[in-house]
Structure formats: structure tokens, C-alpha cells
Simulated assay, not measured.
Amino acid sequence: MSFMQEFREFAVKGSVVDLAVGVIIGGAFGKIVDSVVADLIMPVVGLVFGKLDFSNMFFALGSVPEGTAHTLDAVRKAGVPVFAYGNFITVAVNFAILAFIIFLMVKQINRLKREAPPAPEPEVVTPEDIVLLREIRDSLRKG
């Protein structure tokens, strides 16, 4: 079997195709969760905590050149190393939401996978010759 034939068999196996579909859907789902966190949840959290913008919460680990805006992007573009804890908070919230949604999905799937009722035990059929021998035995005991 040639290398290309082996590769083709590997690539079209169901598990490889399922994995590829899962990765693509997972990537798209990750973007949705990123948007939910960045566009819906973090603004509300920021409002509750005094209009904080988590995306620009950082410590500069070096001196920031004069005239540089105090935003994370501007400081990074200036080549200053930063400790971007606000970005970490956003990513951690993303992870928590994604983990919770996956938990709910797995829980729902497990609920839908009802255990099949156990198969009924097969009825034991006594062979006819055994039945006849028992009848003879029983009639001799009576007689």
C-alpha cells in the first residue's frame, strides 16, 4: 500500500473528520464566548466597579516614554514590557464561561443518553425428551 493510500485512509476515517469538525466549531464557539465576555459581561462588570476598563489595566515594567498614551496597546507599541492583569481577568472570565457552558452541554447530553433497559432474560426452553422423561418419572412415583 502506498504512502498516499495510507494517508487517504487515515484522513477520511470518521474520527479524524469528527475531530476536524469539532476543532472548527470550537474555534467559532470560542469567538462567540470572547464577544459575550468583551462586549456584554465586562462592560457591566466595569460599570459595577466604577467604570473600569479591564482591557487597559496593566503595570508597565519599564519606563514609559513621554508622550505615550497610557493604553495597553500604546505602551506595548513603545516596546515597554507590561504586566497586563486586566487582559488576564478577561481571559479568565472567558474560560469560566466556556467551562460552564461545556459543563451544561455535557450534563444535557448525559441526561439524554438514557440507559437502555436491560434485555429480558431469555426464556429457558426445556427439550421435549426431558419433559417426557420427567412425566414418566412423575407417573412412576404416583403409581
Rank of each mutant, 00 (worst) to 15 (best):
F7Y: 15
G50Q: 06
V33W: 05
F49P: 01
F7Q: 12
K51G: 03
F29Y: 13
A74D: 05
F29W: 12
F95G: 03
D129R: 11
A69L: 15
A99G: 02
R134V: 03
D73P: 01
F7D: 04
A60D: 02
E66F: 10
F7M: 15
R137W: 04
I32D: 02
D39H: 07
V33F: 12
T126D: 04
L47E: 09
R134W: 00
V106E: 09
K31Y: 05
A92R: 06
R8G: 07
V36M: 14
F29N: 02
L112I: 10
E123K: 14
A60P: 00
E121V: 15
A78R: 02
K77I: 02
K13W: 03
Y85R: 11
R134L: 04
L104A: 12
E9N: 08
F3N: 06
D34G: 01
I101C: 13
K77Q: 11
G79R: 08
V64E: 01
R76D: 03
G30V: 09
P81A: 06
D73H: 13
F58T: 04
S63C: 04
V17I: 15
K113L: 12
G14S: 14
A78I: 05
V106D: 08
F3A: 10
I130N: 02
P117Y: 10
D129Y: 11
G30K: 07
T71N: 03
I102H: 10
A38T: 05
V44R: 11
E6P: 00
V23D: 05
K142M: 09
I25P: 02
V93Q: 05
A60W: 02
T71S: 14
S35E: 04
V106P: 01
A92Q: 11
F3Q: 06
I102W: 14
I109Y: 13
A11D: 06
G14D: 12
A78N: 02
A11W: 15
A96N: 05
F54D: 01
F10W: 13
F95N: 04
G14Q: 11
S35L: 09
A119Y: 00
L98W: 03
S2F: 12
A78G: 03
K77M: 06
A69H: 08
L112W: 14
D34W: 00
A78W: 05
E9V: 00
L112H: 12
L112S: 13
I41Q: 01
L104R: 09
S2I: 11
L112M: 15
V16C: 02
I25M: 14
R114D: 08
L40C: 05
K107E: 04
D34I: 00
A92K: 06
K51Y: 01
G14E: 12
V17T: 03
V12I: 15
A84H: 13
V45C: 09
L47N: 11
I89P: 00
A69S: 14
L140K: 12
P122L: 09
M1Y: 14
V93D: 02
K31I: 07
F88Y: 07
M42P: 01
D39N: 14
R114I: 14
V12Y: 11
A119N: 04
G143D: 13
V106W: 10
A84S: 10
Q5D: 15
P81H: 06
N94V: 08
L133W: 09
F95P: 01
K142V: 10
T71Q: 08
A96K: 08
P127R: 13
P127N: 14
F83Q: 10
I41E: 00
G46Y: 02
